[in-house]
Design a protein around this nucleic acid. Structure first.
Lengths: 243, 243
DNA sequence: CCATCGCTTCGGTGGCGCGCGAAACAGCGC
DNA sequence: GCGCTGTTTCGCGCGCCACCGAAGCGATGG
């Protein structure tokens, strides 16, 4: 019964530090095994197993057995969206607590520049692209999200996006509130294909997991623009990453 | 420091049933006293006081002392948006758990028809108006949300919205994911003025708190369309509430 | 000035749930 | 077959947190 109980129960799933770290790592979009998640969360395998069972029962995570490994993924885009909006809220209240808005973030500005939110782009580049793409009339509002215009079809196909694959998704294009920028970025099938295209083109690259190593849930989500990508983003979209 | 800790800490604030009930009641948009919230949550005054102190410290709630009463409100629109998206997620996982999507909701279809989400409209009427208003070209996408078009300025002013007041808000118009409908409704200053206008016109009315009484956090949010309002919504927006 | 009311602080109690180690189980390779 | 690895189940300890009653504090009203 979707009532107050379910409301609080779902929040309780996210509230535990170990589960929170797991969910955060899964926001990178990859499917991770129970053992990897245990190391990331810093708990023993039995503990991680119990946590994962709860996340699966709660519908936040789906599991896919392959041999003796069990791969865990976020259950849906809605989960990613809720986690981001919750993080946005946490960022707000943290800023209020120190009464100094937008103080530099210990985890590195790089994370704010570009990262994966489940399967689509987030961070400055994510919200910047969202603003340019919608502002340029490539997308038009549609019930429940966005639809492609003629101009958008042409330009995005030229960028190398697989628009047919995007249309296969349950939701074609919609907004997802960005945690660090507090403005929307593009989610849905189109958001996924946009991220894929930029990675394929070599404009963005998954960051090397050097800082913090495997135990760092942030590392799995961080993206860095290549020099070539930074130039292309500036020329094609007017995005100045230094700003 | 907005990091994993803040992430989980904010979720933990929402996770407790008593705090969850309080937050839910505050989604009605009214400022409530500590005593009222204690009764709503079904706990003793000292317990409620401790909970409220945590919510205030966490930045989810702001308090305003007036005489011997302490009035509590949600801290911001972002809090409301995060609560709705979390509720959306809970509704999804509940539906998955019973493996029967969209089963009738024990708390009454009325809550799905129309309710307040903080200060703006939610439910079928909320998402319906969002779709019609954006689909009709009254709003156009803008960085971070929506801007008024000429047509929209004319038509919404004719509806009795105070557009100047809407522009005073920190955010003029943006989307907020609807818990029950899982599609966006209109938030921001314009969303608030839209709700105010429909209430002023008598198209919607705050539901009488009969069912459940004061202890029912849902009662404070429920709205019902008047017969006149249902007719007007059908004629002006093509919204058929029976569907 | 005292009674009342709303709210908070303080101390003590209880229970939920996170944590681990040990052991059982399943897949895989030799 | 046997050992190795990844994962789950079981049992138990411990810590945190929600909860209440009683008392303290500030504001209101007669």
């Amino acid at each position: 019964m979707p009532t107050l109980a379910g409301f609080a129960a779902t929040a309780a799933l996210i509230a535990d530090p170990a589960r929170s770290a797991m969910l955060h790592a899964l926001l990178g979009g990859e499917a991770l095994t129970a053992g990897e998640l245990a190391r990331i969360a810093g708990v023993a395998p039995p503990t991680a197993s119990a946590h994962l069972a709860q996340l699966v029962a709660g519908g936040l995570v789906v599991v896919h057995q392959q041999g003796r490994h069990r791969y865990h993924r976020l259950a849906s885009e809605e989960v990613a969206a809720a986690l981001e909006s919750l993080g946005c809220l946490a960022a707000l209240s943290d800023a209020a607590a120190v009464s100094r808005p937008r103080r530099p973030w210990p985890h590195g500005e790089a994370f704010r520049t570009a990262r994966l939110c489940y399967d689509h782009l987030a961070g400055r580049i994510g919200v910047g692209l969202h603003a340019r793409i919608t502002g340029a009339g490539w997308l038009a509002p549609a019930p429940g999200g966005w639809r492609l215009t003629e101009a958008g079809t042409e330009r995005l196909a030229a960028l190398g996006l697989d628009l047919d694959a995007a249309r296969q998704a349950r939701r074609f294009a919609c907004d997802c509130m960005d945690w660090s920028e507090r403005r929307p970025h593009l989610a849905g099938g189109l958001g996924r294909e946009l991220a894929q295209a930029l990675l394929r083109r070599g404009w963005l690259r998954r960051a090397a997991p050097q800082c913090g190593g495997e135990g760092d849930p942030f590392a799995r989500r961080r993206l860095t623009p290549t020099p070539e990508g930074a130039r292309a983003l500036r020329e094609s979209f007017g995005l100045d990453l230094a700003a």
